[in-house]
Amino acid sequence: MLSNPSFLVAWVFKARYFPHDEILNSKKGSSPSYAWRSIHNSLDELRKGTRWRVGNGRRIHICEDKWLPTPTTYKVTSPPTDFEDFPMVASLIDPDTRWWKANTIRSLFLPFKASTILKISLSYNLPEDRLIWVGNKKGIFTVKSAYYIACNLVDTVEGACMNGLPTMLNLTTRGVNSSGFCPLCDKAIENLPHALLHCDHAKQTWSLWQDCSVNLVSLILDPIDIALNLLEKGTINDLEIFFTEFKGACTSFSLHQNPSATSWRPPPLGFFKINVDGAATEDSGNSSIGVIIHDSHDTAIAALNKVLLAPYTIEVTEALALLHGALFALEMEASYAIFESDALSLIQSINSGVVGGEIGHIL
């Protein structure tokens, strides 16, 4: 019913049990059928594993709904802000530019949260918002991915507490040639607590959490002691915020791509070939895309390059490259076209019709 709301069985249950709302907000109702009772009893687990993919933002509440790419809350956890009479994500999107209202977002949210929002990609046609499953990139529910969601936070915290991150101290003990000192401040040996909590640069980040019940800047504590202090002096929400940001600091993404082993060939007679590519960097520089169109005689007839509005992940960048390639092809009236990209996973998703994940609205 979440993935295929147009199916007949979805229509029947919606008409009977949640005609004016989403299934995740539905009530069990009076005299429910055995099937509906079973479905409704599983909704709590489904809520933990779903979040909104932003389309036009009209159905997503800014503070109450899960829509940010920030595990494990996926919610806005910044101090509350007055969004007046329309607290929906649509109020943050400019319908004319089909992009975020950057100045408005920077004025309403803390810098790190504003940066996160501005990195969320929007589709050019601003489709309807859609609930997606966060347990895998395809956005499709599986039992395996549900188990992954249940274990994800536990595994991350356990990995950090077991001191398994590649700090300078750990690299030195594993035979890597390193002084062991923090490469940012050069004041102390870089172990796990120093890297994520005690370094001056880490303290600057934690100082943005202004209403934290524990002073993370002045106290010299390890992650477990901080968690216990938060439980004693704060709330469960404080603990969730701490582990959300801690998880983000523990996570890194590889930008490496395997080069294609297939040589380039011109398209068949009467067709155009549109090659697209995207580039993303590990620093704060914005992503960029490039498009080139060839005819069947191997002649380049048009090209496009563009710097995007934010530093996206490589997967989002490649998806936006395909989108801009399609728009450029329409502009050049290349009706019969073959698209070529080195992003194999995106091509496979398009060919198979599996576009339910985080970037499905772009594809």
Results as ranks from 00 to 15, higher is better:
Thr50Lys: 02
Val54Met: 09
Glu45Lys: 12
Arg58Pro: 01
Lys28His: 01
His61Cys: 11
Leu46Trp: 12
Arg53His: 04
Ala35Thr: 14
Arg59Cys: 04
Ile39Gly: 05
Val54Gln: 06
Ser30Pro: 00
Leu24Thr: 02
Pro19Gly: 09
Gly57His: 10
Gly29Pro: 11
Leu46Asn: 02
Thr50Phe: 13
Ser26Trp: 08
Phe18Ser: 05
Arg58Tyr: 02
His20Ile: 09
Tyr34His: 07
Asp21Arg: 03
Glu22Asp: 14
His61Val: 04
Val54Thr: 12
Gly29His: 12
Glu22His: 05
His40Trp: 15
Tyr17Leu: 06
Gly55Ile: 02
Ser38Val: 04
Arg37Phe: 00
Asn25His: 13
His20Lys: 12
Arg58His: 12
Pro32Phe: 06
Ser31Ala: 12
Ile39Glu: 06
Ser26Leu: 12
Asp21Gly: 10
Glu45Met: 09
Tyr17Glu: 05
Gly55Trp: 00
Tyr34Lys: 12
Gly49Tyr: 06
Arg53Thr: 05
Gly49Lys: 05
Pro32Cys: 07
Ser33Met: 08
Gly55Glu: 03
Pro32Leu: 09
Leu24Gln: 01
Gly57Pro: 08
Arg53Tyr: 02
Pro32Asn: 11
His40Lys: 11
Tyr17Phe: 15
Leu43Gly: 03
Ile60Pro: 04
Gly55Phe: 00
Arg58Met: 07
His61Phe: 07
Ala35Cys: 07
Arg47Gly: 05
Trp36His: 08
Tyr17Val: 03
Gly57Tyr: 13
Lys28Cys: 13
Phe18Asn: 04
His40Asn: 09
Gly29Met: 11
Asn56Ser: 09
Ile23Glu: 05
His20Thr: 14
Leu24Cys: 04
Arg53Val: 07
Gly29Cys: 11
Gly57Lys: 11
Pro32Thr: 05
Lys48Gly: 08
Arg51Glu: 03
Arg53Asp: 01
Trp36Gln: 08
Pro32Met: 11
His20Phe: 11
Lys27Cys: 13
Trp36Phe: 11
Ser31Trp: 03
Lys27Ala: 14
Ala35Phe: 13
Pro19Tyr: 09
Leu46Thr: 04
Lys48Gln: 14
Lys27Phe: 08
Glu45Ile: 13
Ser31Leu: 10
Ser42Gly: 13
Arg47Thr: 03
Ile23Gln: 06
Ser26His: 10
Thr50Arg: 15
Lys28Gly: 01
Arg53Phe: 01
Arg16Cys: 04
Tyr17Ala: 03
Thr50Ser: 11
His20Pro: 01
Tyr17His: 11
Trp36Ile: 07
Ile39Ser: 06
Ser33Trp: 09
Asp21Ser: 15
Gly29Glu: 10
Arg47His: 04
Lys28Gln: 11
Lys48Leu: 15
Ser38Arg: 14
Arg37Ser: 13
Ser33Lys: 08
Glu45Thr: 10
Ser31Cys: 13
Tyr34Trp: 14
Arg16Thr: 15
Gly49Arg: 05
Asn41Ile: 01
Ser26Phe: 11
Leu43Tyr: 08
Glu22Cys: 00
Arg53Met: 14
Gly29Asp: 07
Arg58Lys: 15
Tyr17Trp: 13
Gly55Tyr: 01
Glu22Thr: 04
Arg53Ser: 15
Ser26Pro: 12
Ala35Gln: 08
Tyr17Met: 06
